[in-house]
Design a binder for these strands. Structure first.
Length: 351
DNA sequence: AATGAGGTCAACCGCGTACGG
DNA sequence: TCCGTACGCGGTTGACCTCAT
């Protein structure tokens, strides 16, 4: 039979989170850092399962999350990465540091997939100008429309591939890593048409409330009703942001040797965006027991690779730094088949 | 104004994997 | 090495919203 439920169904709340629950979770994580989710419901009194707490934190409450308003560059990145990696949303999200995998997945399913389908239709019409393609868009009900149509050869139906998923991913990652190295060894600025700090163009005036803003809204109320903490709401939020900024700085240090000449790269856009916050935060870091490994649990594995040097490398850790992918990500002429056609043996030699 | 179709997205579910004992 | 379980991921759901009729 199936595995037993992850948590006791009786007395465990489900559904949307209330502001009070958010406050409770945020204040606990402020004091203890993310991770050890099992203990969260017990220690906070939240009537939620640990999984729900983790999800709420990583997808909504975690600082540094940008919501909605995907830029054109982000769109392109998602499309390119999805074509290359398939529906590996966590891996894709690691190249869009302010986006959650859930957000990217939703955006893909609701916007990009349709967009690409339309584009494909157009190209189909061009290719088969006089051919009758009928019933291509049959009347499917709402559910069947979801997920099952793929706009790229490598997405969705991974089970149809004879190779194991693990093997396939490994191969893809090796290809990517190799390509990244090739790029790094033959940098050619002229061929790069990089966006100008796309992420830094995103301002806090976005019509979507950022997670930090959400927390900031919540915490004053919490402070009024609680005497346990002496933190002000803004300090509380800023503290978490400081932690993330330190994260970012480490990423710069590690990736910059390969990023020379890419000063307008995305990673710097990301950093610039956050340095605005960083400038305002130099005080009251109450995450004294908030170790790097704790931090790394709040970010995806790909992101945490920049922090946790002692951890055992995971498969996705073989991904090249973002800056190395930019070249082909933003080069419309780049052919992904070039990447995919490289043999595994070559890759083995390379490493 | 009512209603239903379609869109959006936060949250859940189930599975695979990692990890500790 | 094996086993139990916590974690993380991707697929899916359903509540809520907008818009057309």
């Amino acid at each position: 039979m199936g595995r037993p439920p992850c948590c006791d169904k009786i007395g465990v709340k489900k559904g949307p989170w209330t502001p009070e629950e958010d406050i409770s979770l945020v204040s606990y994580i402020q004091q203890n850092g993310p991770g050890n989710w099992r203990s969260v419901p017990t220690n906070t009194g939240l009537l939620r399962c640990s999984k729900s707490c983790r999800l709420r934190w990583t997808n909504y409450l975690r600082p540094g999350i940008k919501r909605g308003n995907f830029s054109e560059q982000e769109e392109k990145m998602i499309i390119h990465l999805q074509a290359l990696l398939g529906n590996r949303w966590a891996a894709i999200a690691s190249y869009l540091p302010q986006r959650t995998d859930n957000d990217i997945k939703n955006y893909w399913n609701t916007h990009l997939k349709k967009k690409l389908e339309k584009l494909n239709e157009i190209s189909d019409d061009e290719n088969h100008h006089h051919h009758h393609h009928h019933n291509h868009h049959h009347h499917h009900n709402r559910r069947s429309k979801r997920c099952h149509s793929s706009t790229s050869s490598s997405s969705c139906d991974q089970t149809s591939i004879s190779k194991g998923q693990w093997e396939r991913r490994l191969q893809t990652d090796i290809h990517m890593a190799k390509q990244a190295l090739c790029d790094a060894l033959s940098l050619d600025n002229k061929s790069i048409n990089l966006p100008k700090s796309p992420l830094s163009n995103q301002t806090s005036s976005s019509s979507y409330a950022s997670s930090a803003e959400n927390i900031a809204k919540l915490l004053p109320n919490w402070m009024n009703s609680s005497k346990k903490s002496s933190q002000t709401s803004s300090e509380s939020v800023e503290t978490t942001q400081t932690t993330q900024c330190s994260l970012i700085n480490q990423q710069v240090m590690i990736t910059s040797p390969l990023s020379e000449g890419y000063n307008n790269s995305i990673q710097f856009g990301y950093i610039n965006n956050n340095s605005l916050i960083h400038n305002n935060i130099q005080k009251n870091n109450n995450y004294s027991n908030y170790s790097n490994s704790d931090v790394s649990q709040s970010v995806s594995p790909e992101r945490s690779m920049f922090l946790d040097h002692e951890s055992k490398p995971k498969m996705e850790d073989q991904m090249p730094p973002l800056s190395l992918l930019e070249k082909w990500l933003f080069d419309e002429a780049a052919t992904q088949s070039d990447l995919m056609n490289m043999s595994l043996e070559e890759s083995d030699d390379f490493f």
